[in-house]
Simulated assay, not measured.
Amino acid sequence: MKIHRHPTFIKKGAVLIGNYDGVHIGHQQLIFDAKKHSSHITLVTFDPNPKDYFGQPFTYIQTMYDKLLALKSFGVDQVIILPFNHELSQLSSDQFEKDIIAPLQPEVLVVGEDFRYGRKRAGDITSLQKRFNVHVPKDVMYEDTKVSSTFCRQLLEDGNVDLANHLFGRPFHISGRVRHGQHLGRTLGYPTANLHAPHYPLSGIYAGHTILPDQSCHLSAISIGYRPMAPVPHGMLEAHLLDYDGDLYGQRIHVLFFKKIRDQIKLENFDALKIQMDKDVENIRDFFKKPTIFSN
């Protein structure tokens, strides 16, 4: 998959435009529909997310790195990451068409029903159809709710990883390079692989898997958040790999989430924390004894 930072024409094909945060099944449907029209798929996305740029309350579901991994896995051939800045935010819808879309020479544009573009979101599907061939698949629904990044983000915030994973079509995951922490887990008998996790919508203790660079997969007890027993100024992900002993510092790992076990809580002392962690690991082992759609 090729990655560019400005509109770059490589080959005529289908073009998609959007933030694609989480790359959920609604996004996947747009990609699959694009493949019906062309063998070459270009996706235009933005960094930062426009909501983040304009200072609106916003939490990313995933990093750009993880988003690109997902887009590659679903068959996108080229991703154009446009820096969302003052200049881009001030483009009129007409100028957006001329400067951003037209250089890609799309055979077809595939966008969602609520697609908007240009300054003050003035452009819509009707204006887009005046210049381009546009295909608009129907929204993907879960019961009566449109599957969207906002909906998926709220599910993660609520701890409903089960439903979020269903709407992602795969387990929610975070990747990163293992860094040194305070080694608190090791002193309690639970060494952890630590990832910097400053901005994610979920927190608590989770049952999950950790995938290592050699592609081995390990049952894991995962803590993510601000650690009330040993607070840090930024979010931290700590994965204790069950029945594993090895040096992971500096290596990129992928942590998959399957089930929320409990919230992060502040206990009276570290002895009480050790007892609670024993219970957590037992609950996680019990969880993985049961068949689930993703964990087996």
Rank of each mutant, 00 (worst) to 15 (best):
K2Y: 06
I3A: 04
H4L: 02
I10V: 08
I10D: 00
K12V: 06
K12P: 07
V15A: 00
Y20Q: 05
I25M: 10
Q28F: 03
Q28K: 14
A34H: 07
S38W: 03
H40D: 07
H40V: 07
V44M: 03
N49A: 03
P50Q: 02
P50E: 00
K51G: 00
D52S: 13
F54R: 09
V76M: 00
F84D: 12
N85K: 13
S93G: 10
D99Y: 09
D99T: 13
I100N: 00
Q105D: 09
T126F: 05
R131H: 13
N133G: 02
V134H: 01
H135A: 01
V140Q: 06
Y142H: 14
D144E: 15
T145L: 10
V147K: 02
N160E: 09
N165D: 07
L167S: 04
H173Y: 15
R177F: 11
R179Y: 09
P191I: 09
A193K: 13
H199A: 15
Y200W: 14
Y206D: 06
T210S: 13
Q215T: 12
S216I: 05
Y226N: 13
A230W: 01
L248C: 07
I253G: 04
H254I: 11
Q264H: 01
D278E: 15
K279N: 14
D286V: 04
P291R: 12
F294N: 12
